[in-house]
């Protein structure tokens, strides 16, 4: 993956990471119409398309920030695949059977397929972590929030009124708990295919 040449459309990914309003606007102007059409043709409407596009962009942003996403294919193909999959998954969930999957619309770009697959995997992971984090006890949540917001663990310990050693140990155990919860969830096995 890292051997592959980075596509010039990486500028869209970088623009998202930098929260560049012009790039966000350009993504909508250039790539949204195709997605909106697709969703409208498959039992959806503009407002559903709006949600799908927004969620997809947030996922790309998250992956780029967390994992340093590198684009090895045109943004167009990658973005369309992601939006399409997201929409088809939503239709599947609501049990809507009026889906006309036009496979010709599918990109034949292998890189795009692979990258889109990685991104949707990332998204499911991200959602799983979010869900499990909410299930942690308040003490763990507070400590984790503080320890990632504040750089120095000494300050974290001070702000929570605990010793430095305890804060460090507690941080490991809280992340450990989150790790365990994620690993034990049924969704986790699907992610480790």
């Amino acid at each position: 993956m890292s051997q592959k040449k980075i596509h010039e459309d990486q500028k869209y990914i970088d623009g998202l990471v930098q929260n560049n309003a012009f790039i966000i606007q350009a993504i909508y102007d250039k790539f949204a119409p195709k997605v909106v059409n697709y969703i409208k043709q498959n039992s959806g409407d503009a407002s559903r398309a709006q949600d799908v596009i927004q969620e997809t962009i947030i996922t790309i942003y998250n992956q780029a920030n967390e994992k340093g996403l590198q684009l090895t294919c045109p943004f167009d193909a990658y973005f369309f695949l992601l939006c399409k999959r997201k929409w088809l998954n939503q239709l599947k969930k609501t049990g809507n059977k009026e889906v006309t999957i036009n496979e010709e619309v599918l990109s034949k770009d292998d890189d795009a397929q692979e990258l889109a697959f990685e991104t949707s995997l990332f998204e499911q992971q991200h959602n799983l972590f979010t869900e499990m984090f909410q299930k942690l006890g308040k003490a763990c949540k507070d400590l984790l929030k503080a320890s990632f917001k504040i750089k120095s663990m000494e300050e974290v310990a001070k702000s929570l009124g605990v010793s430095y050693a305890y804060a460090r140990k507690k941080k490991s155990l809280c992340i450990g708990k989150l790790t365990k919860m994620v690993q034990e969830s049924p969704a986790y096995n699907n992610l480790k295919s």
Binding site: F129, L144, K149, G176
Partner: peptide, 22 residues
Amino acid sequence: TYKEASGFLEHNFKNEEKNKAF
């Protein structure tokens, strides 16, 4: 998985303001 969780937390909380702005 621990590393993933750590990365997730870091992105979520260290960049909380940035993410909100985005």
